[in-house]
C-alpha cells in the first residue's frame, strides 16, 4: 500500500510528464497529418517513421545560441517565455482526466485523477488563460521589434475579443450543470438518454459547442485565426526575436495550451471520462480519445482553411460569434427555467 500523499504527488508528476509528452506527440502528429493532407511524407528520418523528430527538434533548439536584441528590455525579455510556459502548465492543474480510482488497489482511499479539485475550476482556467496574454504581450513589447510588437498587439486584442464568446458559451454549460466544478459538470453527463444517446452536453448545446470550439481556436492563436504569427506579414509574430530555449518555451506553451483547450472542451461538452462500453476505472481511455479527436480537428483545420484577414477576424468575433453565444445563453437560461435541468 502506498500512502495517499505519495499517490497525489505521483499524479502531479504524471500530469507534468504527460503534458510534455503530449506536446511532443502533437508536434509529430501535426507534421505527419500536414504531410498526409499535402500528399507528402512529413518527418521520416529520425526514429521509426520519424517518431523521434520532436526530440531531435528539442535538442537542436537547446544547442542553438540564445540571442537577445540590443535594445530589448533585459528582464522582461526572459520573463515573457517563462510566464507563457508556466501559465500553460498551471491551467491543466484543475482539469480532471479520470474518475476516482484506487490505482488498481495500490492505495486504500480512492483519489481523483486531477492535480487540484477546486470548486471554481472553470473560472480558474479562465483566469490563467487571461494571464497567459501577458506572456505574449511582454514578448512583443520587450523585443523592441516592430514585427513582434504588431504580433503581440494583434494577439492581445484577438484573445480579449474571443475570450468573451468563450466565456459566454461556457456559461450556458454552467447553467445546465448548475456548478462551477469541472468534476461535477462531467459527472452530470453520466448515463444515456433512452439508453442509446450519451448524456453529453454537446447534444443539448450544439450551438454552444460550436462557438466554444471556434473561440478556442482563436484563443490558442491557431489557424485560421493565427494572425499574431502570420508568416507573410509578420515574419513570426511576437516571438520573432527569440531563439534557443526561450523560443522552445513559447513553442511548448502553444502546444500545451492546445491540449488544455481540447481537454476542457472534452470535459465540458463531450462527457469527459464517461462513455459507453468501458468501465468507470478505464474512463481515462475515453478522455484521451475525445481529447485526441478534438486535437486532430485542430490540426485538420489548420492545414485546410486559409487565414482570415485581421478585420474579418474582429468582425466575426464581435458581430457574429458574440451575439450567437449571447442568444444561446438567453435561450438556455429560458429553457432551464421552463423545463428544468
Amino acid at each position: 500500500m502506498i500512502p495517499l500523499y505519495v499517490a497525489q504527488v505521483g499524479v502531479v508528476v504524471a500530469v507534468f510528464v504527460m503534458l510534455l509528452l503530449a506536446a511532443a506527440v502533437m508536434v509529430y502528429s501535426e507534421r505527419k497529418v500536414a504531410g498526409a493532407i499535402q500528399q507528402r511524407y512529413g518527418p521520416y528520418l529520425v526514429g521509426p517513421k520519424g517518431a523521434l523528430q520532436p526530440f531531435a527538434d528539442v535538442i537542436k533548439l537547446i544547442l542553438k545560441e540564445p540571442l537577445r536584441p540590443v535594445a530589448a528590455d533585459r528582464v522582461l525579455y526572459y520573463v515573457a517565455p517563462l510566464l507563457s510556459a508556466t501559465a500553460a502548465f498551471a491551467a491543466f492543474a484543475v482539469v480532471p482526466f479520470g474518475a476516482e480510482t484506487t490505482l488498481f488497489g495500490l492505495i486504500e482511499e480512492p483519489i481523483r485523477l486531477q492535480v487540484a479539485d477546486v470548486n471554481v475550476a472553470v473560472l480558474v482556467i479562465f483566469a490563467i488563460t487571461s494571464i497567459s496574454v501577458y506572456g505574449i504581450v511582454l514578448a512583443g513589447w520587450s523585443s523592441n521589434s516592430k514585427y513582434s510588437l504588431l504580433g503581440a498587439l494583434r494577439s492581445a486584442s484577438q484573445m480579449i475579443s474571443y475570450e468573451l464568446s468563450y466565456g459566454v458559451s461556457l456559461a450556458s454549460v454552467l447553467i445546465i450543470a448548475g456548478s462551477l466544478s469541472l468534476t461535477e459538470i462531467v459527472d452530470a453527463q453520466q448515463g444515456a438518454w433512452l439508453g442509446v444517446l450519451p448524456r453529453w452536453n454537446v447534444f443539448v448545446q450544439p450551438v454552444g459547442f460550436l462557438v466554444f470550439m471556434i473561440a478556442g481556436v482563436a484563443e490558442t492563436n491557431r489557424a485560421p485565426f493565427d494572425l499574431p504569427e502570420a508568416e507573410q506579414e509578420l515574419v513570426a509574430g511576437y516571438h520573432t526575436e527569440y531563439s534557443s530555449t526561450p523560443f522552445m518555451m513559447f513553442f511548448l506553451a502553444e502546444y500545451i495550451n492546445m491540449v488544455t483547450a481540447a481537454a476542457v472542451a472534452a470535459n465540458l461538452f463531450l462527457g469527459g471520462w464517461h462513455g459507453p462500453f468501458l468501465p468507470e476505472s478505464l474512463g481515462w481511455i475515453w478522455f484521451l480519445a475525445k481529447t485526441g479527436a478534438i486535437l486532430f480537428f485542430y490540426i485538420w483545420m489548420r492545414w485546410t482553411l486559409p487565414r482570415l484577414r485581421y478585420d474579418q477576424l474582429m468582425q466575426f468575433g464581435w458581430k457574429v460569434l458574440l451575439p450567437v453565444a449571447a442568444l444561446n445563453l438567453i435561450l438556455t437560461a429560458a429553457g432551464v427555467i421552463t423545463v428544468g435541468r
Binding site: A127, S130, I131, E163
Partner: peptide
C-alpha cells in the same frame, strides 16, 4: 470567487488596457 474575479477582470482585462 472574488479572487478569481480579481485575476480575470483586474489583471486580465483592465491591466491589458493599461498595457
Amino acid at each position: 470567487f472574488a479572487a478569481v474575479v480579481q485575476i480575470i477582470i483586474y489583471a486580465g482585462a483592465i491591466m491589458v488596457l493599461f498595457l
